[in-house]
């Protein structure tokens, strides 16, 4: 027993003297002096000892305790002092590379979608998602694109059945959502779309759209223009100049296609805009009266506009990407640049 006490004390002292920081000191205090510590355990065995040994052993334990406490205190003070001294003298190469935590990377298309979402929400749009697999009615017919009409050539389509297709545009959400709502409303729909065309540097068969539309009384073509100015400036910067020009989509009337001055060269011409200074940005227009009727909204009372961004296209513009396929191809060396 005596030997055991001595060993414990010695072990404690040697460990304490080698302790390098306060945490270690605290830990050792618990191990040896804690309520369930090594000394406490020894103390608890005193009642089993022969009576004549009890007092002596008790004293030995107390001595050990005292010694350990003293050493803990002195070593603690020593550690404190050393640190203060080190702070004055210690040299570190502060130009050495930092030890970096791992950081991940967001797909650039996601970043564009979030930027658009924030801009839409500032304008009071509700963001909604709708299915990717839709029927012919919502993707085409309800948007004034009858079967066998040449306007179907505007969008090369994959078919699953005669009536079911992966949507060619998020405009498939227009009548689907509008028929359930009462004007006025402002809605935006991000999502994946499909085109049956071979992918190359500027085409993908699977990419994103971000549709927006608003319906109410007295909504005008000028309101469409203002809305697009706000949204495009939010994503591409306040300096952007926009050009509105006539175009044709069967579900809007009037129709407007928008080009913007290149955000990299402010219209002077650079590699991002192919030297022209201008970039095609999106299609838009006033919702065709027949489309409103298809959604059971009276075009005599209400008007509205609709437009559709291409987040993939915006990501190409914003990050000077000359090959659209990099976003879906998951090459980590590319994605980790963003």
């Amino acid at each position: 027993m005596r030997e055991q006490i001595l060993n414990t004390k010695n072990e404690a002292l040697s460990l304490i003297i080698n302790a390098k920081d306060k945490i270690e000191i605290d830990r050792l205090r618990i191990v040896f002096l804690g309520r369930k510590g090594r000394l406490a355990k020894l103390t608890s065995s005193i009642p089993q000892l022969p009576d004549n040994d009890k007092a002596q052993i008790g004293k030995l334990i107390n001595d050990a305790k005292k010694a350990i406490e003293d050493t803990l205190a002195s070593q603690g003070a020593k550690i404190k002092a050393t640190r203060r001294q080190d702070e004055k003298e210690e040299w570190l190469d502060v130009t050495a590379p930092g030890i970096r935590p791992e950081i991940g990377h967001l797909n650039p298309v996601t970043r564009i979608i979030w930027e658009l979402t924030e801009a839409f929400e500032k304008l009071g749009y509700q963001i909604v998602e709708t299915p990717e697999i839709v029927n012919d009615w919502y993707n085409f017919e309800s948007l004034n694109i009858p079967p066998h009409h040449p306007s179907r050539d505007l969008q090369d389509t994959f078919w699953i059945t005669e009536n079911l297709l992966p949507r060619t545009h998020t405009s498939s959400a227009q009548v689907m959502l509008m028929e359930k709502l009462k004007p006025p409303f402002k809605i935006a729909i991000p999502g994946w779309v499909y085109r049956c065309e071979r992918s190359d540097a500027t085409h993908e068969f699977y990419f994103t759209h971000y549709e927006g539309f608003a319906v109410g009384k007295n909504i005008s073509f000028a309101d469409l223009k203002g809305t697009l100015y706000f949204l495009l400036r939010s994503v591409l910067g306040n300096e952007i100049k926009l050009k509105f020009r006539a175009s044709y989509f069967p579900y809007v009337e009037p129709c407007a296609e928008i080009s913007g001055s290149c955000p990299h060269c402010q219209g002077k011409g650079c590699s991002a805009c192919g030297g022209s200074g201008w970039l095609e940005l999106l299609g838009s227009g006033m919702i065709h009266p027949q489309v409103l009727k298809n959604a059971k909204i009276n075009p005599e009372i209400y008007s509205g506009f609709a437009f559709c961004f291409g987040p993939h296209r915006l990501a190409m513009i914003k990050y000077k990407v000359n090959d659209m396929r990099i976003f879906n191809n998951a090459n980590l060396r590319i994605l980790q640049q963003f």
């Binding site: 006025p184 409303f185 005008s220 000028a222 223009k225 203002g226 509105f244």
Partner: peptide, 11 residues
């Protein structure tokens, strides 16, 4: 065409 925003209060 002028540049405006929809004036109507939207829910």
């Amino acid at each position: 065409i002028p540049i405006t925003l929809p004036q109507e209060q939207m829910g």
